[in-house]
Structure formats: C-alpha cells, structure tokens
Design a protein around this nucleic acid. Sequence first.
DNA 1: ATCATATCGTACTAAAATAGTACTATTTAA
DNA 2: TTAAATAGTACTATTTTAGTACGATATGAT
Lengths: 150, 150
Amino acid sequence: MLRITKMTDYAVLILANLALHDKKFLTAKEIASETHISLPTSQKILKKLNRNNLVISKQGASGGYALEDDTKNISVAALLKTLNGDLSITQCSSNDHQCQVEDFCNIGDAWQMINQRVQWALNDITLGDLIHPTRIEQFISTNIPVTRNH
Amino acid sequence: MLRITKMTDYAVLILANLALHDKKFLTAKEIASETHISLPTSQKILKKLNRNNLVISKQGASGGYALEDDTKNISVAALLKTLNGDLSITQCSSNDHQCQVEDFCNIGDAWQMINQRVQWALNDITLGDLIHPTRIEQFISTNIPVTRNH
DNA sequence: ATCATATCGTACTAAAATAGTACTATTTAA
DNA sequence: TTAAATAGTACTATTTTAGTACGATATGAT
C-alpha cells in the first residue's frame, strides 16, 4: 500500500512533540497525554526511539525522554528507515535476494530504480521540516517536477 | 512499511509479461506458467486488471487477456493507485479526515507534502519504462537530485 | 536505607490486512 | 452441444501490525 505503519506515524508525532519542548525531559505519561496516544503504546515507541538513538532517556525518578541533539536534522528517509526497518517499496527489490520468481522476472531492477527515486524524494526533508510546515511549502514550491500526468 | 503489496508486484509482473507478447491474447494458464505465479492468483489478478481497464479480456474458448492499448503509457503512480487503491503514505493524510488525533497533531499537513513528493517521483515513470530498464537508467542519470544525505 | 517513580526488555494476545483458494455462472468458438 | 475460457463472489489461512502486561533495573527524594 505504499504506506507507513501506524506505529511510525505515532513515532513521528511523538518526536514532533518532544521537539516542541526543546531539550526538556518528558515522561512517557506526559507524552501519552499530550499526543493522545495510549500510554503503553507510547512507552513501546519511546523505547524503540531510544534504542535507535533518536531520543535520549533518563531512568528513575524525574526521568523521561528528550530529543537527541541532531534528531531534528535527520532526513525523513533515514527516519522511516530506522522506524520502519526498510525503505524498499517491494520485497523482491530488497538487498537480500529472496524473491521466488527472480529468475523469470523481466522487470529486472526497475523497482530498484523506483525505490531510488522515492528515496531521493525523502532525503531532502528533515524531521525539523515536518514541524515547520511553512518551510516545507516554500521548499516544495521551488521543486516543480516534470509532469507527465494521467 | 512504504511497501506495495505482493499482489501489486505480481500484477506488474503479469502486465510486463503481457507487454512482451504484444497484443496477443494469452490465457490465464499461460500467464501463470510463464510468470510462475500460481494459477488461482494469476486469475484473481487478471480479473482485477481487467476491471480496471488495464487489460482487455475475451471470454469463451480461445479467449484470454491482452494489454489495453495505452497501458504501456500509464505512469507508475497511476498504476499503483489503481492496483493498491491509494498512494498515500499515511492514512491520516488521506482525503477522508478520519484521523483520531488530528486535532492534536502538530505535524499538520507535512505528510501530505511528503506524499506529494513521492507521487511526483512516480509520475514520470511509465509501465513501458519498467519493461525497458536501460531507458530508465538513462532517465535517472539525468535526474540527479539535490543531496542532503545522512 | 527505603520508597516512589521512571525506564528497559521481553513475551504475549488481539485485531486487521493480505494472500491464496474454491465454486458457480456465463460466454464463445468449434 | 461441448469444451475451454473468463467473471463474480465468498471463504479460509496466513502474516503483519497493534496493543498490552509484567518483572527487572535505575534514580532521586525523603
């Protein structure tokens, strides 16, 4: 479905929330209540974000989570890659050649080309851009693509 | 997972196969055997392709399927849209505003911007391009994007 | 020291989406 | 009339995704 999972959507929401409270440590409970994502789910996501070094955590009383220093500058491509595991559109175009019909596939590496294009499209947008939509609007308006519509 | 379904992958494979046998009618059985996709699945996909006017069908004895005239010129974006139903990356960025946390979402329409970029990336590649990879390689080499890597 | 409050890791369960199959009806050329 | 093909639909199995729970560990305050 060319679609990221709900979890990744939540994750970005949470990251954005952390970005708003610059540097300050927030507990999972606070984050859950602000983003309206259920507490257990918030916790789960925050742990993952921490493992992937997108947020820093402090254990114990008055602990919590805060944004890593350079997380704001991470590209959406890199973000989705760490959160969703892979940016490939199709499985058969992944690096590990597990495709069953590979030998008979006359599409060849066309999917890979498409993957690459998508990746390019996402490489230029940072998490910081997501939080400041106006900046993106400006950004996009200067990148009118070749049109070959249908 | 920013990933299209197996079914769509199969569909493109089948379309490519039909494109190779230009205009000639092939039975579902033939297509299944050539693409190594199971017969029932091939049939299922071919029916869908037919309903979406990507292939034409002839019923009865000596019937079969063939590519619609202008299917080769359809963009990958349009292709994925008809096959996968939607090109949106996230659900909340779909047109129908069903997002539960919409009111609290400070990402705003950033996802929509990203969706747009991806859509642009896929608008310029046609099904025909997929079948002739060399043409794509050339195509891509002339479209070096702005790099802001991570 | 102890306690209250956090995160951490892991395992488990439920729900939803996807994939695959089967069956009956209809069409068509020989 | 018959054989061979598509058309529609409904059903089942599998896989992925989402959500929850629980015991362990860490930390600051009292």
